[in-house]
Amino acid sequence: MLAGGGVGRWPKEGSDDRLLIVDSATISGLLSVSEWIDVVEQSLRGVADGTVVQDVRQILPLPDYRDRGRVLSMMFGAVREPACFGAKVISVFPDNFDRGIDSHRGAVLLFDAEDGALRALLHGGEITAARTAAASAVATRALSRADSRVLAVLGYGEQASRHIDAIAAVRPIEEVRCWGRDNIKAAAFAERIAARHQVRTFASTTVAEAVGGADIVCTTTGAKMPILFGHMIEPGMHLNVIGSSTADYREIDTAAVVCSSIWVDYRAMTEVSAGEYLQALAEGAIGSDHLIGEIGTTLNGALRGRTDAEEVTMFKSLGMPAEDLYAAERLYRMAIEKGLGTRVPL
């Protein structure tokens, strides 16, 4: 997709086959929050209409996985229009947050569908961070009540911040509640959010306090055991559950799963990696039909959305190759058009 929205052939610079490297700072300046949301919506729709061929995430637990949850992750796929294919390879080190560095580090490799050439290497952490929040915003726009004004965010890391930015772009948020395990850090995070968004912002000392009365709840933690429980869920809420991405981790308990209507980004990924869903299924609390379906199908009009103001809706996000590829292709085009990035010979 061209930066202006049209479809066309990839820009070529004569016989220049050098690799274009696009770093984090360049990526962060190319797309606005609203543009990220639009790109990710295209990817979700593409998965639903068969434009995308992709596989589930491949994860290699590293030797210290049991103690630290560290993994090497790879996702790959191909897109028919705009024509491209590629892969994202990243390390996930959850404990990096405590050291003040990114938890997701790696790159998206973008290939040319015409001749198979590797055209670009783009900062994987920046793409992951932006598209994850954008996907939640797409789902929130499709599933939450239009009058949702109170947002609760569990966690105070990068995804918490990005989710507030993205959700505020699709709903008229007037109040934000923040919770994290460290009350001092949660309070500092709340102060930063208040200064940036000019909305009422509070640091809550408990999860129950944060989510009580909230219209939208985003769980953005690396919790292995549930932090949000079914008895805390209120009629009409919308949940974005995004922090856990392996079968043995879950941020919400089985009761919260049972009381929610669940949409996902990519069902095949859900069936192997969504701990909340898989553990509720294993316990016999739900059947496979408890999943409503992929959010892209709802966006395309072939699947229902929210049925009434009382329904509890949930978007379980795991990320998928299509999101990375649609974003990388758009960023590559924009970098070429603006003369950004660094060319290196292979």
Results as ranks from 00 to 15, higher is better:
Leu30Pro: 00
Gly180Leu: 04
Lys185Asn: 12
His104Asn: 06
Glu191Gly: 07
Gly29Ala: 09
Lys224Tyr: 07
Gly116Trp: 00
Arg80Gln: 13
Ala309Val: 15
Ala129Asp: 15
Arg149Tyr: 04
Arg119Gly: 15
Leu110Pro: 15
Phe97Met: 04
Met334Ile: 15
Gly296Ala: 12
Thr220Gly: 06
Ser260Trp: 12
Ser73Gln: 05
Pro172Ala: 02
Val272Thr: 12
Asp23His: 13
Asp308Ser: 14
Thr140Glu: 05
Val153Ile: 12
Ile101Tyr: 11
Asp308Ala: 09
Gly100Ser: 11
Arg267Ile: 13
Asp265Pro: 13
Ala117Gly: 08
Ala187Trp: 00
Ser34Glu: 14
Ala120Tyr: 00
Glu310Ala: 14
Asn240Thr: 04
Trp263Ala: 09
Glu276Trp: 10
Ser317Leu: 09
Val312Glu: 10
Thr313Leu: 09
Ser288Glu: 15
Arg149Cys: 02
His104Arg: 02
Asn183Asp: 11
Ala187Leu: 01
Ile336Ser: 03
Ser73Cys: 03
Gly69Pro: 03
Arg192Ile: 06
Met75Gln: 04
Glu209Cys: 11
Ile21His: 11
Pro61Trp: 00
Ser15Lys: 15
Arg250Phe: 11
Arg145Lys: 13
Arg200Asp: 07
Ser73Ala: 08
Leu239Gln: 10
Gly243Tyr: 02
Arg171Phe: 11
Glu271Thr: 13
Val176Pro: 05
Arg192Tyr: 07
Ala188Gly: 03
Ala309His: 15
Gly100Asn: 10
Ser73Asn: 04
Cys259Asp: 01
Glu337Ala: 15
Phe76Ser: 13
Glu175Lys: 02
Ala135Asp: 04
Ile252Gly: 03
Val22Gly: 04
Asp23Glu: 13
Ala274Ile: 10
Ala120Arg: 00
Val138Ile: 10
His238Ser: 06
Glu209Asn: 10
Ser204Pro: 00
Ala146Thr: 15
Asn240Gln: 02
Gly86Lys: 05
Gly106Cys: 09
Val52Ser: 02
Leu20Asp: 03
Gly46Met: 11
Ser317His: 12
Ser148Asp: 07
Val153Arg: 00
Ala194Lys: 04
